[in-house]
Amino acid sequence: MIDIVIDGKTIQAEQGASLLQTALDNGIDIPHLCYHPAVEAYGACRLCLVEVTAESHGRKKTKLTTSCNYPVLPGIEVVTDSENIRENRKGVLELLIARAPKAKRVRELAAEYGVDAQAYPVSGEECILCGLCIQVCKDVMGVEALGFIGRGDKKDVGTPFDDLSKECIGCASCASVCPTQCIEVIDTADTRELPRWRAIHKLVRCRICGKAVATEKHLAHLKKTVNMDEDVRSVCPTCRREFYAKQAMAEGHM
């Protein structure tokens, strides 16, 4: 553990950890959209800008940088709010609101920073192309059903070759991490649809209580990756807990 200074306060932090995460852990709020502790910081949304003063070659230098992918280093001093930072975040938000005017979170942040006039041509999108869904799909789920497509103003996120995804398992992890909540998941009695990825999955219901557990493909994926009793894998979390509680009681742990 080393000492760093954030907004004048000395904070104990782990060297090499994400600066943004360290600040958040210490109750210092830095606005961010695309950061998620489960995956490596990608620095796409550019909102978590802070000023870092560090010594290099015997001279102290202050620079504006994204905090999510900036490591905690000995002796750094961090400012999370200043005129300069707010001005730059405002610039970032002007771009984000033009890209995703329908996204609630982006609108809230824009209002907070007083961005109203749209400085750039507006698209009707909600996705800010941060790629968090892609990362979670690949690095957390180990599926790689999603990827970027194209580049520049035509860049998009989607399934390969733009057709019904072979790889998607319908776990909806992408939807749960999406900072702008633009990935819709529609569950019906026995199907789950992810219209953005053009995927329709069969839902499996809990053997005991009948509640939806997960998609067929998701359970098959779990079978390969998680060591779990066949009996409990296909029941819902509530019934699973009950099963294990009963088992523990029978074995006299409780």
Binding site: E144, G150, P160, E167
Partner: peptide, 18 residues
């Protein structure tokens, strides 16, 4: 290599045509 990755590369460079 995942199909997503190949698709990204194939759509990234304008020299490629699908």
């Amino acid at each position: 290599v995942s199909r997503s990755r190949i698709n990204y590369m194939a759509t990234f460079f304008s020299a490629f045509s699908l």
